[in-house]
Computed example of a mutant assay.
Amino acid sequence: MTGRPAIDPASERDLEIMAAQLGRSMRGVLGIGARCACGAPTVVVTSPRLPDGSPFPTFYYLTHPAATAAASRLEADGTMAQLQERLAEPAIAEGYAAAHRAYLADREAHGAVDEIAGVSAGGMPTRVKCLHAVLAHSLAAGPGVNPIGDLTLELADWSPAVCACAPDARGSAEG
């Protein structure tokens, strides 16, 4: 990775869409890490410390319902265990450890929080425990940063290149 992933500012419309996607108001939003083809938020970037002072380790958080459902289906069908086995491959293990370091660096650029120091997301760097988290990281950071996230995206029955948003939840890139 040559630099930090870009974070788009979150508009009021983005906040409304994400609140509808997640069924709750948003907290600690730094911006949008990835978007659907229509422009709707897919990954929110969240402050490492929430406004109430709570530490929040999940810097990249998957919000898009279709992406979330796709990750859930993969977890339910045993794909997570198969991806865990892939960590026995040296190149995948090294890439996953590098993804862990990149995730920490991205988050720490927005504030160091002692309570979550060294903790990334998704089980990195040695376990695959949440495909939602590694997929969110991969979508925000781009291809080649998180090999498990990239594999999750390849296996998912969803793509950010094809809008799967409800008509009232579409972003500004599509009318």
Rank of each mutant, 00 (worst) to 15 (best):
E89Q: 12
C36V: 14
G111D: 12
A141Y: 08
A169C: 10
E75T: 00
Y60W: 10
E94K: 11
Y60A: 07
C130T: 09
H64W: 13
L30R: 15
R24T: 11
E16Q: 11
L104R: 08
V162G: 03
D168C: 04
R73F: 05
D106K: 03
W158S: 05
M26D: 08
A98T: 12
L22Q: 14
E12W: 05
M80F: 03
L153D: 09
H110I: 05
Y60F: 14
R13I: 09
A121C: 01
P143C: 05
P9Q: 01
L153G: 12
I116H: 12
L22Y: 04
I32W: 13
E85M: 06
L83W: 08
A98D: 14
S47F: 00
M124T: 04
L135R: 00
M124L: 13
P160K: 14
L131Y: 09
S54Q: 11
A136Q: 01
V45K: 00
Y60I: 00
C36R: 07
C163I: 05
R86H: 03
V43S: 06
V119G: 01
L83K: 06
G122S: 04
N146G: 13
E115F: 15
D114H: 15
S172L: 07
S25F: 08
K129V: 09
G3N: 01
E174R: 09
R73E: 14
Y103G: 02
E174N: 03
P160E: 01
V44L: 03
C36I: 12
H64K: 05
P57H: 12
P48T: 02
V29S: 07
G149W: 13
A156T: 04
F59Y: 07
K129P: 11
R170A: 12
E12C: 03
I32Q: 14
H64G: 10
A66P: 12
R49K: 02
G28M: 00
Y103T: 01
G149Q: 11
C130Q: 10
M80R: 13
S11N: 11
A140Q: 03
A88M: 11
H137C: 01
V113G: 04
P90D: 12
S72G: 09
G142L: 03
V119M: 15
A121D: 01
S11F: 06
A19C: 05
A112W: 13
H132Q: 11
A40G: 06
T2V: 07
G3A: 08
P160T: 09
D114P: 14
P90F: 13
L151Y: 04
Q21N: 15
F59G: 00
Y96K: 09
L50E: 02
Y96D: 04
A161I: 06
I17H: 02
G39H: 10
C130M: 11
L131D: 10
A70W: 10
T58P: 02
H110Y: 13
E89K: 04
L155S: 08
L153E: 15
V162Q: 07
L74R: 11
E154S: 10
G23V: 11
V134M: 01
L74V: 07
A69T: 15
S54Y: 07
